[in-house]
């Protein structure tokens, strides 16, 4: 509630004062983008997790796919796909991501090792996902476990935007219509055969670009028009 009134940057500064974790401090250091900025000026990270289930308490992350959007272009150079090892017997909390061997990369690394890198990428950015609950829930749980603090970030959720658009038009919809695949089809976008975290992150990012163009053909929409 307080966050809603005072904004994410206020909440970020409060958290920054409280946290003792170095990783978290670094993540929270960078201000979030201004809500009034043009959406075309915002750096956005489209994120997708593949998980063993929907419950962050019981389930675990299998892979992380992400890609950055800047100037309303999806920059594939920035794309990455990280397999996560679910084997809890290999705690490597101290391993920083760039020290990981190729072999470990292929077999996946521990989530404890992957999270700091993810936070580094997300710092100061806006997070984009389709049905945000999963991604946010898992990151939040991991942040509590590892750093003893809440996770916070401005979020854009393409599923929320679709739902809002249907509601604004007063058009009833089926839950099925809110699926990434079906929404993409309604925007004349290709159906990707592969389903992995990275392709889904790219698919979500493309859908988001289409939604931006639909809402503001002149490219003059603000970040606040899209935030959840």
């Amino acid at each position: 509630m307080l966050t809603a009134l005072l904004g994410k940057n206020y909440a970020r500064r409060q958290l920054l004062k409280k946290t003792t974790s170095a990783v978290m401090k670094e993540y929270l250091q960078k201000p979030f983008p201004n809500k009034k900025d043009l959406i075309s000026d915002i750096e956005i990270v489209s994120l997708d997790f593949e998980t063993t289930g929907l419950n962050p308490e019981k389930d675990s992350i299998v892979s992380i796919g992400l890609v950055k959007i800047s100037k309303l272009g999806i920059n594939l150079q920035s794309s990455s796909h990280q397999l996560i090892s679910t084997n809890e017997n290999l705690p490597e909390t101290s391993v920083v991501i760039h020290q990981i061997t190729d072999n470990q990369l292929a077999n996946g690394i521990n989530i404890d090792a992957a999270l700091p890198n993810l936070l580094k990428i997300l710092s100061g950015k806006v997070l984009l996902a389709h049905n945000m609950k999963t991604e946010l829930g898992f990151i939040n749980k991991m942040c509590h476990k590892l750093y003893g603090t809440d996770f916070i970030i401005p979020v854009i959720d393409t599923q929320f935007l679709a739902k809002r658009s249907f509601e604004r038009q007063g058009r009833p919809y089926k839950n099925n219509e809110l699926r990434l695949f079906n929404l993409r089809q309604s925007f004349n976008m290709p159906a990707y055969k592969a389903h992995n975290a990275l392709m889904d992150a790219i698919a979500t990012a493309e859908l988001f670009l289409a939604m931006v163009q639909k809402m503001s053909p002149e490219n003059n929409a603000r970040l606040s028009d899209f935030l959840s």
């Binding site: 075309s40 100037k71 309303l72 272009g73 999806i74 920059n75 594939l76 150079q77 794309s79 790219i202 990012a205 493309e206 670009l209 289409a210 931006v212 163009q213 639909k214 053909p217 490219n219």
Partner: peptide, 21 residues
């Protein structure tokens, strides 16, 4: 090649290319 690409979306009726690129 794929890693070197940027993906853009243009809506029907919009001018191509636009100033963002």
């Amino acid at each position: 090649l794929p890693k070197k690409l940027t993906i853009r979306y243009f809506r029907q009726g919009s001018v191509f290319p636009d100033a963002l690129v």
